[in-house]
Structures are given as C-alpha cells and as structure tokens.
C-alpha cells in the first residue's frame, strides 16, 4: 500500500469517528410509549386518546393513554377469564409469584426511583417509597398461605355436622389506586386483593401514572398470569361510573374517594350488590396500609356443613 493511500485511510477513519461524535450529540433519545396493560398485553387505548403529563415546572414528560369505558370493559373480560385459573393456584404458588414481583422490583429500583422523581417526588421520598413497595410485596407474599388458617374457623353446632368456615376470593375486583404515592399506593391496593386469589382491574393515579405502567412491565415478567392484574391510566372522573356499575365486577376498592365520589360509587354498586371498600389510609408507610385484615376486605366467608356420625 502506498504511503499516500495509508494517510487517506487514516484520515477517513478520523472523519468517521468525528461524525460519530457529532451524531452522539445530536442523538435522538428513544422515549417510552406508556400504554395500558390488559390481558397480559400492552395495547393502546381503543379510543386513541391521550393526555400530556407534565412536570411541576410544566415540561411535558410523556403522552399517557387515556383509557375509555371500552378499555375497562375489555379489562374486565380479561380479568374474569383469568380469575378461575389464578384462584385455583395453590396459596404457596401465589406467595411465590408475589415474592417474584418483589425480586423484579428490587432489580429495577433505580428506574422506579428516577421515574417517581420525574413525576414530582423528591429524591429521598422516592427512595423510601420504592423500598416500602418492595417490602410490602414480600409482606403479602408471606401471608399468602397463612391468612386462610388465621381467619378460618371450626364452628360448634348442635346437629351431627362438622361445620367450618373459610375465606374465599370474591372474583373480579375494581381498584381505584390513590392519587398520592404512584407506586406504593398502587402496590398496597393490589397486593392484598390478588394474594387472596381475586383478579383485578386497576385505575392508576392521575398525577403519577407512569409508575403503574412500568410496574405492569414487571408483572408481565413475574409469572403473574395474563389478565390476573390489568392496569388502566385515565381520568377518575370519567371512569368511576363504569368501575362501579359493571355487573361483572364483584367489589370496588378505593382509598381516597371524596364523599360525593363515594356516594356515586355506592349508588352504582347497588345494581349487583358490589362490595364497596374505601380504605381511608392516611399514612402509606404505616401498618394501617399493611395488614392481613386488608386481605379479608375482598374475601367471602364460605361455611360448609359436613354430615358426621351417621
């Protein structure tokens, strides 16, 4: 190779690397599209609507899917389909899956922390919230194979029967996650519902909706069966009516409804006698947000009369 050509080759390599450096500066960031989580898939809302989520300073962070009543309807169908399979899993297995969710959340701590900060939490709060969310999942994972023992009873009866009562899941539960604490509030509402074998459709916080969809990605890879947990982002004002009126929903769990909203939910829930639970939790880090009685909120007690001594 002649000297001249060698120089030319070196020059061209330099040119390429310079161009790459320049491109690095100008690189288009790949932004995440936040969609819904229905039946184990991430569809866009069927309505095609979205809203712009902004930082407190007014900078646009993301276009968030604004779920419609039809998305909710699809989610209920998915939840109903998943219910029998999820409820039939052994308590031990459900515990394992909740623990798995905690493992996955631990592995993605940084992402959840920075996402909360992006949505307006301060750094320390965000760290504390993510840690508490992980611990909460582990807490309920532990209860999976214990709550039935604690809350069951053998009842004394006068006839020749062995009479016992035990809690069983209600079915499909609609969950309105709290506005504050986009991650911890969500996890604290979902975990006691699903650990007891219910499937659920969740409306995430309007202020911090991004954490819920990132959390959905985590469930998708944690052996949670498709449809057992479904997550929608959207406007509470628009969807509350449908969450509480749908005939195939067995209970509505919320924690921060105002009295007018609660009244609306209660009157729509009458149509099929849904159970309405408004938890009124003030401190999401305290034991009022983490106890086995919360599992019992979405359980039915079944009593069996078994003939003996005939």
């Amino acid at each position: 190779m002649s000297k001249a050509r060698k120089i030319a080759k070196n020059d061209s390599l330099e040119l390429i690397s310079a161009a790459q450096n320049k491109a690095e500066d100008k690189r288009l960031e790949v932004l995440k599209t936040y969609k819904l989580y229905i039946g184990g898939a991430f569809p866009r809302t069927e309505s095609g609507r979205y809203w712009k989520l902004k930082t407190p300073a007014g900078k646009v962070i993301a276009n968030v899917s604004r779920a419609s009543r039809k998305d909710f309807r699809n989610a209920v169908v998915a939840a109903r389909r998943a219910f029998s399979g999820w409820a039939a899993k052994t308590a031990y297995n459900r515990g394992q899956i909740l623990y798995r969710m905690a493992e996955m959340l631990e592995g993605r701590r940084e992402q959840f922390i920075s996402e909360l900060v992006l949505q307006g939490s301060n750094e320390n709060e965000a760290v504390r919230e993510v840690n508490a969310a992980i611990d909460r999942l582990v807490y309920y994972a532990g209860w999976a194979d214990k709550y039935q023992q604690v809350f069951s009873a053998v009842n004394p009866v006068q006839s020749s029967h062995f009479n016992f009562s035990l809690p069983e899941p209600m079915g499909v539960v609609a969950v309105i996650a709290p506005e504050s604490h986009g991650l911890l509030g969500l996890v604290s509402c979902i975990a006691p519902v699903i650990v007891g074998g219910n499937s659920c459709v969740v409306l995430s916080s309007e202020k911090q909706p991004l954490s819920s969809i990132t959390f959905a990605e985590l469930m998708e890879s944690s052996d949670v069966p498709a449809g057992a947990i479904n997550i929608l982002t959207g406007f509470r004002e628009e969807l509350l009516e449908h969450f509480s009126s749908h005939m195939d929903v067995n209970a509505v769990v919320s924690s921060d409804l105002e009295s007018a909203e609660l009244k609306e939910v209660q009157s729509s829930a009458v149509s099929n006698l849904k159970r309405v639970i408004n938890l009124k939790i003030k401190d999401w880090f305290s034991d009022e947000a983490q106890n086995p009685y919360l599992i019992m909120e979405t359980q039915e007690i079944k009593t069996t009369w078994h003939p003996i001594g005939l």
């Binding site: 309807r73 209920v76 449908h242 009126s245 749908h246 005939m247 195939d248 149509s271 099929n272």
Partner: peptide, 8 residues
C-alpha cells in the same frame, strides 16, 4: 348503558 355479567 350498564355492562352485563353472564351471572344474570
């Protein structure tokens, strides 16, 4: 206007 359930 209310979504139905097969239960009924």
């Amino acid at each position: 206007g209310i979504y139905q359930s097969i239960d009924y």
